[in-house]
Design a protein around this nucleic acid. Structure first.
Lengths: 327, 327
DNA sequence: TTGAAAGCGGTACCAT
DNA sequence: ATGGTACCGCTTTCAA
């Protein structure tokens, strides 16, 4: 048969230009022979790979895995496959994952690990690869991004505690090199200031990483410094769980002695003791939005740079309650 | 310059055949021009894509995400990229993910979602694609697999409860179409029988899925039927947490009234109330082993079919204690 | 050790 | 609506 005709008949997008009966015959033959067009050859010729890469700091992290899942869902529905990369600093050969992905001719890239100031983005732009940022924004907003409204989230958390009657509220911040860490800190400061309770530096402690151990260590420092505080707003759930551990060691109770609120609403925090009040973010939805944005960008490289900001939600459980009455 | 020479100089594996100074000049030039060989063209010509696919039932599942992570880590170290696919039944176009991946010329495939009897495996074998199963074994062991020793794990769980003094022990089983569900059930029956306490059918209840809600519903049925039992062995942690919920609704306490033990040791189960005793499985390590196995298979398609079985570990926390003394 | 030529398997473009 | 042709960018084989 005639290669061009077959090619066209097999591509739903341009099948219309081919005679109805011919298409049927070709489809049948393909079925019978178990023929499937070679994606690699098609990529070489067409320049499109139908491949998208995502770079995350940790695949198994409960924040990123639903993002990957949502993204994959949108992409695969549209015929794209997703390559997941997780650059571990100590690993050799990782010198440049972005480069490796670009050499594979990915049609687009999702970056879930850029720092607030990061030259990775610049390199992608210079390579002309469509890029979308997720769960991270960069200081200059050069490329599209999908993030939760961290400032609004902290406003929610602070408002909840104020309403319960708390006045002396601390913040357990995340690393300030990461946008969520920085934005949430800013959100905390703004919300407190708006209530006339502007925090001083000693009311805030930075964890070294968004982990339980990081939260634990930082909470120990913070609570030693500010024993009379009645509530802590943690920059994420893992940090909040670190506060739990610190409290346990210090012989203080949550929520009776200290209210704690987290951020993310990751799986199982409703079952920890006490069930954690937190700010819910739909990471899966963020992944889906990221997919839509990227697909749009791939189709129209010079489309406008749009930023999606998803709304967070307060989830009240049992780790927050009114402050203890002073004796 | 001379394309062949450049190609050879850029490939570390065969650089040796090229003159030292020539190599240096080529490397420099490549650096200067920002040249990177096109992987797609290379794939087309060489037949190798340096691409591996993994198919999981749920990317965000705490069992599978560390597997993916471990696998990715091994693969990317060796120059392979990992495509992650997550076939959702209701999704269109998914008609055949395997086919789509094969059309992309993946060098190998990891299946994390095969049922006990599954024709997917057969199709891969017939397509000559190297395949490794992970966290799932099939009834006939036609292809390599990496699994935890589920039977041994259940033996550990049962032995722990027996040692505490329990005699009336129940099993909350997972879906029997899945190898872990079926193997763990068998392990439970064997371990109990070995102790002269062979369970009857009513001592075991199957959950519809490995989820909290599935566990919750099944636990309600099981505990209603067997109120005097003093311990439950759940087929995984999520199911065990479902038991917690059921207990709470029934006004019974864990561990005072009923000991509960899970399986997997997923993140955060050490912080739930009460901290869950469980069987630890290193899913990340399983992912790494899977990568090694697959790479070996890719290199030598006709190598022997090996099966890796990782050893589980008992983790005692606070959800298990001696049975209440009968009044 | 290096150069030359021939494809890998499709798709884009032009001709009919 | 279909057929013909060139060619995507590399690797492989063979020749020098």
């Amino acid at each position: 048969m005639h290669p061009s005709t077959v090619s066209r008949a097999l591509d739903p997008a341009r099948r219309g230009r081919i005679g109805e009966p011919v298409v049927r015959r070709i489809l049948e033959a393909a079925e019978r022979l178990g023929y499937h067009p070679d994606t690699v050859a098609a990529s070489l010729r067409s320049g499109r790979s139908n491949l998208v890469g995502i770079i995350v700091p940790d695949i198994a992290n409960p924040v990123f895995s639903p993002i990957i899942s949502g993204l994959e869902s949108v992409l695969s529905e549209r015929g794209y496959a997703l390559i997941v990369a997780d650059p571990q600093p100590q690993r050799s050969g990782d010198s440049d994952i972005i480069q490796r992905l670009v050499a594979r001719r990915v049609d687009g890239l999702v970056l879930a690990n850029v720092a607030l100031h990061d030259d990775t983005v610049e390199r992608c732009v210079s390579w002309q690869v469509p890029v979308v940022l997720v769960n991270r924004a960069e200081a200059e907003a050069r490329v599209p991004s999908v993030v939760s409204d961290d400032v609004a989230g902290m406003r929610l958390a602070v408002a909840h505690l104020l309403e319960l009657g708390h006045r002396h509220i601390l913040h357990l911040a995340g690393p300030q090199t990461i946008s969520t860490g920085s934005l949430r800190r800013r959100g905390f400061v703004e919300a407190m200031s708006a209530a006339g309770l502007a925090p001083v530096d000693d009311d805030i402690e930075e964890a070294e990483a968004f982990t339980r151990t990081g939260g634990h260590a930082a909470a120990l420092r913070l609570l030693a410094r500010r024993p009379q505080a009645t509530a802590v707003v943690a920059a994420n759930d893992l940090l909040a769980l670190g506060v739990y551990e610190a409290l346990r060691e210090m012989g203080r109770r949550c929520p009776e002695d200290l209210s704690v609120i987290g951020h993310n609403d990751m799986p199982l925090v409703d079952l920890v003791d006490p069930p954690l009040s937190t700010i819910r973010i739909s990471h899966r939805e963020m992944g889906e939005q990221t997919g839509e944005l990227l697909l749009k960008l791939i189709k129209d490289v010079h489309g406008e740079v749009s930023h999606v900001v998803t709304a967070p939600l307060l989830v009240v459980r049992r780790s927050t309650q009114p402050p203890p009455v002073p004796r």
